[in-house]
Amino acid sequence: MIPVGFDYARPDSVDGALALLAEHGEDATVMAGGHSLLPVMKLRLAAPELIVDIGRLRELNYIRVDGDEVAIGAGTRHHDVETSELLATEVPLLPAVARTVGDPQVRHRGTLGGSLAHGDPASDLPAAVLALDATIVLRSPRGERSVPATEFWTGVFTTAKEPDELIVEIRVPRTGTAGWAYEKFTRRANDWAIVAVAVVDGRVGLVNMGSTPLRASATEAALAEGKSIADAAALADEGTEPPTDTAGTPDYRRNLARVLTRRALETAAGR
């Protein structure tokens, strides 16, 4: 359908964008690819007065090695993450997860930063970033700060990002050859995950098992203690509060979390 009318600005720098956010406060909404925002605006579930379009800021679009980490600009599109040869070598989980987001058209528009900022507990990349122990770099007129992924998501569609802040970078540890896997369970390829599990280097991220992306900490602890994959995976749903919808009950999601975690850990162990 058709969004409510709004004003539009396309600043030519991050600083310009931050200035607009500072000036307009909560009336302004940042748009990168627009693939989380425009759908809700079209259904008139959101009606910002000003759209600040950061989709073309080249300074937010890069993937480079920086010490023990790979630094990814927040404006990097899913398609660029998916096809990055650098990431395929340094953080192979991330391209594999990006490939499962939406469909090719969506991946040509949606961005990593946008996905993390939107904070949908059913989306793929937040849980992957969480399992990777990544750091999210935020900038505002007050300066820059880094928030560990483990502290970034605070509730359904809410994050540690202040309204005047922009995600500018995601810093991901180089996991290299450490075992990894992504098990995404959907009814249709193009659906959001009913449940998904990201595994890398013994860490486990869960999609759609609560109000935020989660780590399966009981599983991780069990693995650290040397428990078998089967035993550790059986704990994957511990401490979760999975949602109910037409695709799944909480019991069903708990089962999926355990099964998918076991499978992901087995795949990761074989890599």
Binding site: L38, K42, G102
Partner: peptide, 28 residues
């Protein structure tokens, strides 16, 4: 109206996008 069906797919700078979920101003 949910970016699901792809009937509106066009190429934007050579890449497929769903033109119902791109603003004209974004294609400027």
């Amino acid at each position: 109206d949910t970016t699901s069906c792809g009937a509106c797919t066009v190429l934007l700078d050579g890449e497929s996008v769903k033109s119902c979920t791109v603003l004209a101003v974004q294609a400027d």
